[in-house]
Design a protein around this nucleic acid. Sequence first.
DNA 1: TACATTTTATGACTTAAATCATAAAACGAG
DNA 2: CTCGTTTTATGATTTAAGTCATAAAATGTA
Lengths: 198, 198
Amino acid sequence: MISSELLEKYGALKKSFQKNEPIFEEGNLPTHYYQIISGEIKMSNYNDDGREFIQGIFYKNQSFGEPPLFLNQRYPANAIAVEESTILALNKPSFTKLLEENPAISIQIIENLAQRLYYKSIMSAEISTHDPEHRVLKLIDYGILYFNFPKDNNGYLIHFTRQQIGDLTGLRVETVIRAIKNLEKKGELKIINRKVYR
Amino acid sequence: MISSELLEKYGALKKSFQKNEPIFEEGNLPTHYYQIISGEIKMSNYNDDGREFIQGIFYKNQSFGEPPLFLNQRYPANAIAVEESTILALNKPSFTKLLEENPAISIQIIENLAQRLYYKSIMSAEISTHDPEHRVLKLIDYGILYFNFPKDNNGYLIHFTRQQIGDLTGLRVETVIRAIKNLEKKGELKIINRKVYR
DNA sequence: TACATTTTATGACTTAAATCATAAAACGAG
DNA sequence: CTCGTTTTATGATTTAAGTCATAAAATGTA
């Protein structure tokens, strides 16, 4: 996360996106660095028959879509506003200048990318070698650690829909629903009027 | 990649590893930055019933295992020498000093992490939403672009075993063998005495 | 407040990939 | 050169998760 003041000093502009509006699309060449002021953004892919895979969900103060910006490669996924969102966008030349003139920012970017790689390493191993219950639970536990889900007296409230969990773990909704029910039976989590707690 | 001279100037030491010898193991805390001088290293996970998932394979001049080093988190996977390998290891305090005194290196690290995130984004979407043939072909095409496989008059020689392809794509050997046969029938690749060309 | 949409839920069935069994070819260490 | 191991290969069978159908509850919005 780079401070709004610094970004604006280098010419970043605020842009608003409505629910379901794309920020950029798969195959496009990157032009800007993006950082969320408010709202929620998901990056995802769609396969040939419309099935979605969510690469990640990003919230306030987080940036997204930098890897292709650094590599001059086309975006491997779409970025879409999950709800109404406001984003700071800084064009590439200015962003490069900002990095050159503020070396300390590089370390932050490194840590940020490292964190995302860490998530992807964990989840890719899960997705390819573990059963649905294990996958769902791992995603939930990761979410608790890094998405700071709210905690009340029932435990952490997992504010993902079953569909989102499915799209993040490569499972179908029905499978997620059944996995969550089983996890509840096993006492790994609680379902209180349809909301999941852990 | 950081030049050997610079790494050695900061005190990096050469270490040799035999085939199948671990460099570090899942759950350990990182202590060094590692860069390959010669050989081949794989990072992988094993699930409860011994099934392997290969996170990545690294060759000459590549570094591996940095994300947890930057984050002070435990390694999410094991690093094992696929063949006899020599590696430069620089301890964390010296590595931090190297980074501070050589800001240009940060940009290289960023690009490197970005490239790996790019690979993981592509493969995770593949693994969770596409059929085996698609997954295998995508991995092969990625390998051609970034692992510089040798090219001869039959095309690019894919020097992965069927088992490795399976462990990289979350498929079983038999499934990979069958997928490759089908891809050959469809003319997407060639099998010349058991070796795969594209 | 009424109605459309989304989310959660459950049962029946289908299917793609895993599993199991077996073996030949290739490779590698001694 | 030989023997053990790894890699590739193929057929038969099983099974876990996907698919399909249907619906109630919850949510959002006109």
